[in-house]
Nucleic acid binder design. Structure first.
Lengths: 192, 192, 192, 192
DNA sequence: CATGAATGAGCCTTCATTCAT
DNA sequence: AATGAATGAAGGCTCATTCAT
């Protein structure tokens, strides 16, 4: 994709992202100066790699977005449209409540990195296709639009964080909330 | 409740709250210095009345919370438990997407003012009672807990804000999302 | 003019201006943080009084501009138009080479403080009137425009600073340069 | 003079100077990092060729200084000492208001490159000789010293920049100002 | 009670220069 | 010779909060 970094630069890049990951995990707001200090690097180095906190956050979130996108592609091969859609959405909310880097990236209207935009578009389009298939199979009510999927996932993630609890609780809560929403938008009575 | 304010103090209190309301409405972050300047008062005066920005925000949100609480009390008198519950929840989400002061207050784990805690408890308990009645009437699935109501309302409000749109759009979107969730938690065969 | 400052605020204001005066005199660039440190005040205090370095510099320059403006008004009463004009211009260049705060303020296209604009306009208009009188008395060539006076004063001041020398030298050099220019723009052969 | 550069090094040198010329022309401050980026070269390469921004600026200014020096030599051959002197000075101010690289180089008390010092000395000495001849011919007042020529040219250029206007205006203004000064230092009764 | 000046930690960002690759 | 990553001092500015008047 991009020019490969020099070995030492790559090591610093990794160190920065790793420190940022830790900060995100402990709920500390990402501040580039702070990251630099913790990584034992000059501020300038951090700024060279990541022009803004958002760019760094998106980089931290990227692997998880990649994994979701991969899952999205795979879900499209599912023979059962409903199962494909719901499986994808469960994974998505799980990711959102599990990885603190995701919610702000998912909710942001504009992205700092083109790669983030690509990934988000990939996810959006996977969701849209999965939804269209489920609708074609008459498994989903017609008043659920593709444009509602991202907001709903963000909403559920937010609901979970308001609910609180341990990480394990949170995953379980996310499942319950998503199940309720899915129950509300599916066509046929069936068990999830 | 509290010691009545001297007339001039009361006027200042009003002026501060009114300025804060305007700031909230225009999406400006509440800064007490800023409020003081716009109100034509000294910072100290503002601090005397409101120890923190949160306290001021809660004061701004209070009337709306009062109204919701009143509606909650009234909903308890509804002969139809399902209608009572859903009416209350629709009002609640409407308020959240309509008044920018509410979402942060609703989602906060701790309150700056005792009055806010009272009001939130009042709402929570109204919701719990309405839910219990609906469940007793077998209108609602048993896996929806009282502790889920607030998170779900916050989640829907957040989903709406991610979705975006004009204020009117937002109300409509909030209705759709709440309708989906309610559809997912009700017991009876759907009517739409 | 403006609301009188509280006594302590006035003392800080004075201290800031005085520190700034010293910095200007020793040729140090005006930096508000620096001023704050030297004045033993918080940065915020300096920023409260002077929003930008330019505002502070203009404040430092103001007394000198006031004095020039006063001289300008007095020069208008001189019975000899040529003497009025040249006296005013000599004072002006003297000030420019004597007070390091003046050249940047005089050359700036836009001012930070309204008061500065007023003073500069006052000087400009005094110069214009003095020039018009001298021209009416046929003491000055008609191709010297009012709009040339400020540039010429700035130019002479700059020439002097390029020439260098002790402060006393500089005043003398300024006189020589101005004398040459005046010799070039006057109508009648006469000694300055 | 210097060791001849390898062909690629020479190409880089050219590229750097050319980029710097563009930056100067568009009024952008010369920053070596910036130059490197625009030239598609490493910073190190730029630093190898030009140790400081001043050295680069002087290199950019050099051709123009060379041309002036050449004109100075030629002016010495003019049969009319006054015409030789004034022609030289007109050229000089024109260059100063036309080429943004010159004023800072001309006004600097110390040079980064020996070559610059040579060129400036060449110009200074040409001016001194032209002035001496004009004085010998009694075309110029005796109180104008050789050491005044550079300051006066710099002063006029500065006056022009304070006056402002389009490039064409500026040349015309420069002519007027120089004409006034010359008028003030010449011995003969005026013709203009 | 009201005032608003003062505080200063804290964050952001730039850029001249060095030096490992 | 060329590269460009790294450095980190330096400067800019904001804002929540205190406290003398």
């Amino acid at each position: 994709m991009t020019t490969p970094l020099r070995k030492d630069a790559a090591r610093n890049w990794q160190r920065i992202v790793s420190v940022a990951r830790d900060l995100v995990d402990e709920g500390t707001p990402l501040q580039l100066n702070d990251v630099a200090r913790r990584a034992g690097l000059g501020v300038g180095t951090v700024y060279r790699h990541f022009a803004t906190p958002e760019a760094l956050l998106e980089t931290v979130a990227a692997p998880c977005l990649e994994a979701l996108a991969a899952h999205g592609r795979q879900a499209l091969t599912d023979a059962d449209p409903w199962r494909g859609l719901t499986g994808f959405l469960f994974r998505t909310v799980e990711a959102q409540v599990t990885d603190a880097a995701l919610p702000p990236v998912a909710a942001a209207a504009t992205d700092a990195l083109p790669r983030t935009t690509e990934l988000k578009e990939s996810l959006t389009s996977a969701g849209a296709t999965l939804l269209a298939r489920a609708r074609d199979a008459e498994a989903v009510r017609s008043d659920l639009a593709a444009a509602d999927l991202v907001p709903l996932m963000c909403g559920i993630a937010h609901a979970v964080s308001v609910h609180g609890g341990t990480p394990a609780d949170r995953v379980e809560t996310a499942h319950r909330y998503l199940a309720a929403v899915l129950e509300g938008v599916r066509t046929m009575p069936r068990s999830v």
